[in-house]
Amino acid sequence: MSRKPVEPLHIVKQRRDAALKALVGSIPYIEFLGVEFDRHGDELTGIMRYSDHLIGNPVLPALHGGATAAFMETVAVIELSWRFFWEDIEAGKIDASALTPETMPRLPKTIDFSIDYLRSGLPRDAYARARINRFGRRYASVHVEAWQDHREKLFAQATGHFLMPARDE
C-alpha cells in the first residue's frame, strides 16, 4: 500500500495563491474598483476597499449602486472561474505561475444580473461571497451576498445567470 506523499503546506498555498492572483490580476476593472480576494481553502471572500470614487450619494454619503452591482458581479465571476479551474490547478494541469491573459481559462459571461439593494452602502470596506447554486456545463446560477460591518446584516444581494466557457477536452 503506497499513498501519495503529502505535499508540503507552503507548496499547496503557493500554487493556489498564484492561481488566484493570476486570475484576479488579469482583469483591469477589478483593480479600478479596488477589489481584493481572501482565500481560505477554496472559499473566496471579495473585499472592496473603500475609496472616494465609489460614492454615489455624497449627501448621505453612500456607495454607488453601480459600484455595489459591479463588485457583486465580479465576485460571482471570480467564484465561477475559480470553481471552473480549481481541479486543474490541484491536478497540476495548469501551471499557475505561467498564466498570462492569453493562456488564462476563458471567463464566464454574464447573461443577467439582478440586484436587490437592502440598505445604503456605508463609506467603508464592503465584503461579498458568492454561492453557486447550479454549475452546469453551459449555464450557471449564482447568488451573491454583500455586507459591511455585520455578516448577518446584508446591504445587498444579487442573483445572476452565466454562460460557462467551453471545456478544452
Partner: peptide
C-alpha cells in the same frame, strides 16, 4: 476606457461598468 476592461483577452468592458451606467 482600458481601465474598465473585464475580459483582457477580448478587451471588452466589464458588465459592472455597464451596470453603473444603467443605474446612474
Amino acid at each position: 476606457d482600458a481601465r474598465l476592461v473585464g475580459d483582457p483577452r477580448t478587451g471588452v468592458m466589464h458588465g459592472g461598468a455597464v451596470s453603473a451606467l444603467m443605474d446612474t
